[in-house]
Design a protein around this nucleic acid. Sequence first.
DNA 1: TTAAAATGATAGTAAAGCTATCGTAAATAA
DNA 2: TTATTTACGATAGCTTTACTATCATTTTAA
Lengths: 225, 225
Amino acid sequence: MKVQLRVNMNEALFLRNPEETDLGKKIIKYSILLIHKNGFESFTFKKLAEESGTTEASIYRYFENKHRLLIYLVTWYWSWLEYQISFQTNNMADPVKRLRKVIKLLTTTVEDDDSTSYVNESLLHQIVISEGSKSFLTKHVGEDNKLHFFKPYKDLCAVIGNMILACNPDYKYPKSLASTIVEMAHFQNFFMHNLPSLTDFGLKKEEAEIVDFLNDLVFTSLNKS
Amino acid sequence: MKVQLRVNMNEALFLRNPEETDLGKKIIKYSILLIHKNGFESFTFKKLAEESGTTEASIYRYFENKHRLLIYLVTWYWSWLEYQISFQTNNMADPVKRLRKVIKLLTTTVEDDDSTSYVNESLLHQIVISEGSKSFLTKHVGEDNKLHFFKPYKDLCAVIGNMILACNPDYKYPKSLASTIVEMAHFQNFFMHNLPSLTDFGLKKEEAEIVDFLNDLVFTSLNKS
DNA sequence: TTAAAATGATAGTAAAGCTATCGTAAATAA
DNA sequence: TTATTTACGATAGCTTTACTATCATTTTAA
């Protein structure tokens, strides 16, 4: 059985839906490759056009600017991850086990998923680590938020926040702890690889250590009487 | 008694030391005002030149590019904050009280400090919240790190990591917890003001609540038997 | 006071970040 | 089928950004 996974994206993010055309899928595919390779700062629509065998003008027919495209990629990832979480924690009765699973999914390198042909989730995961924060750390975060660009991120955090409450209904900061887990799953990964003295994982550089740290952080907070 | 505070900056960050000339101080002063007002993305040396009554060319004599200037500002802040911490926790015997003080200093809005005339610490604090991560979230973080640009940040985290060990010598993740505290002091602040559903502080929007959250997070982790 | 250093004034270049137009091919509707 | 949208490619052009270079003038230091 082959199932095709399709992520429902906010229509305000694009001018023309990239999922619906070959060119659109190429734009997504090569934007992931290019941003992963050279970083978001040096990424331009001109380079993307060359790489994907089209013209700058054509890309502007899909996305207003490169920042919108970044938000598109990042929120695609959050939506996809929330789906992965709901799929993989389905039928898990124990809320603690569910939360442990979530921490592992957030932290661990994802394998490329064949059910989404033009998106390389593994590269996208690394992009979200390095560039994800830039999607909201702007002066126009308020307007972008009004357009609901960050809904997938907020939804994911809300899901995690509810799992936290399922573990301990009396815990006072479920939302803040949820966003802390998500951000730290990525920041500790970035630090481990680039500024290792900011972590305790400089020697082995294994994601499993980040998982241990986050598990310790979260469950000591939730288990106190 | 009036003391002038001077932060020792990494010489590789600038071409000409901005602390040593009137123009240099103006560049720092107005770059803080401009970045705070319009954000780092729309900040240019041309606008800065107009604002500070000089020319683009003159600013390029001080800083290679705007990213170096951002790192200058952010690391200046980290150095200043580490000094504030050492000053304000001096003579505190109880390591728990010291760490609480640090969390408060990290999280709470700073007042403008008269002993550094051309730097508005309060505005700079907000810049570090919104733009600070961009100083290292780049493709050239490795080279920048080799030039020791992030030493003040690492030093600060190391100090906090040692305070964590002073509270509990057996705690396994002092460095990661330190960087988590620092990052979350800022991210929870940004979220509270811009994406409040990611926090538990959306109603009152008070920094004191972030302090409570971080204290809870840190000290339950450190107090477990 | 004289030389050196810092700044201002001005010019210029390549690239980034767009917008506009036109022709054609392919998809779609009448 | 024919007519007509629609999508895309090709090309041009415009403003801003991110620099570099040159030379005159002012300030500072020896």
